[in-house]
């Protein structure tokens, strides 16, 4: 095989960097706006460099009516979604990974098919039901719908996490004196933990980002995206940009934490 030519290298780096800029520049720009003075939004022309940094815009957003309450609701919803999805999804994923039983492929297929149901189908009728049950306009209602949305994802991810742990290991533990349960707890669980944590954090992001169901199912107990989208048309531009940045930042941090597991997670769940 011939060695790589420098022309190829230059083209590769040019393309790679151009695409990286395409991804990163918009994030930089909204960050720039979020940390510029409020009126900078309307200034014309204005610099592309962070020449006048200010927390004024962010402070305005954070102290605006409802922001903190909505943030709190978002966190509660996302945490509840994360925990519930994991409690329900991890055992199912484990079963798909470890056991052969009649209809296993049908179950897998059925889980995939649930992705076909749009949020509108889930949330609009449920809103009616939740009103009757008195659950409407609570974080729990939103979290339940978010769990329904995230559960297929969590099941398939945990299945792939457990599939990646050889069955032999648990069996070896059983020949060395473990019961099936203690073999799972001592061997598979510790090995699966990083993958499960990554799946859990990604579930958190999914819920944190979801807006349709949250906006349908709440009235006063808004989550952050639901709050932002419902006040969008009445709010000034700098409020929207600060809100955009405020929603992006935590998700970015979480993504950074789980980046090692990202491709593993998605790759297998895409099947």
């Amino acid at each position: 095989m011939k060695g790589r030519s420098w022309v190829g290298d230059v083209l590769w780096y040019a393309g790679a960097i151009a695409l990286a800029l395409w991804v990163l520049a918009p994030i930089y720009l909204i960050g720039l706006l979020a940390f510029s003075p409020r009126m900078a939004v309307y200034r014309w022309p204005r610099p592309l460099l962070p020449l006048e940094l200010s927390v004024e815009t962010m402070r305005f957003f954070v102290t605006a009516t409802g922001t903190l309450a909505a943030t709190w609701n978002s966190i509660v919803v996302a945490l509840f979604t994360m925990i519930l999805s994991l409690i329900l999804g991890a055992p199912a994923g484990y079963a798909l990974a470890r056991f052969f039983f009649p209809g296993r492929e049908a179950v897998r297929m059925g889980i995939l098919m649930t992705r076909m149901f749009p949020m509108a189908i889930l949330s609009i009728p449920l809103a009616v039901t939740f009103i009757r049950m008195g659950l409407y306009d609570t974080p729990w209602a939103v979290a339940l719908v978010h769990t329904a949305m995230a559960l297929p994802f969590v099941i398939l991810i945990t299945a792939s996490v457990f599939t990646a742990i050889p069955r032999d290991l648990e069996e070896a533990a059983m020949t060395l004196g473990c019961s099936p349960l203690s073999a799972f707890l001592r061997i598979s669980l510790p090995l699966a933990l990083p993958g499960l944590a990554a799946a859990a954090l990604f579930t958190f992001v999914i819920s944190w980002n979801e807006v349709f169901a949250a906006a349908i199912l709440t009235l006063r107990q808004r989550t952050l995206p639901a709050l932002v989208i419902t006040v969008l048309n009445e709010s000034p531009l700098y409020f929207r940009f600060a809100g955009g940045f405020f929603m992006v930042a935590p998700a970015l941090v979480i993504l950074l934490i789980i980046r090692r597991y990202l491709f593993h997670l998605w790759g297998v769940s895409g099947r």
Binding site: D168, L169, E171, A172, M174, T175, C178, I187
Partner: peptide
């Protein structure tokens, strides 16, 4: 009996050495 009550030990083809 389950494996743990049989007083056997086993060496697996993959070795199944616990990675953690």
């Amino acid at each position: 009996l389950p494996p743990r009550r049989r007083n056997i030990a086993m060496v697996f083809q993959s070795y199944a050495v616990f990675p953690h």
